[in-house]
């Protein structure tokens, strides 16, 4: 049974690695939200960084779970967040345009 356990260990550790890779994306998304100059650029920061971060966390947890049911549910959650955040990102940007909020430009 030793080879099986070793295999599980490799899966577990690569899952940990993936989660660790995902965390900086979340943190930089928040940094962008604070630092970027206007609503449009803040939307960029949040939508892209957080979705990539969540993708890493989800795939890491899926590797560690070792169960197809949990993996499927994790992927469903990621897909849902992906659709939801890209749609709400577009909605907020469109409303901001219609409200005549000028994008920040470099002088």
């Amino acid at each position: 049974m030793v080879p099986v356990k070793k295999n599980m260990d490799i899966l577990y550790h690569s899952g940990t690695l993936l989660i660790l890779l995902g965390l900086p994306f979340f943190l930089s998304g928040t940094v962008g939200l604070i630092r970027f100059p206007d609503i449009y650029t803040r939307l960029h920061a949040l939508t892209k960084a957080d979705n990539v971060g969540l993708g890493f966390v989800v795939s890491g947890l899926a590797l560690q779970s070792g169960s197809w049911a949990v993996t499927a549910k994790l992927l469903l959650i990621w897909l849902l967040v992906l659709i939801a955040s890209s749609a709400s990102c577009h909605l907020i940007a469109r409303s901001a345009m219609q409200k005549n909020i000028q994008p920040w430009t470099r002088q």
């Binding site: 989660i19 979340f26 998304g29 939508t47 957080d50 969540l54 947890l61 560690q64 907020i92 409303s95």
Partner: peptide, 25 residues
Amino acid sequence: TAADRMVTAQLFGTCGVAILLLLST
């Protein structure tokens, strides 16, 4: 603007989901 505040709500969505997933394990 109110939209800037709403973007933070979106952050709560994604980050909160990630935290819940991690806590679940």
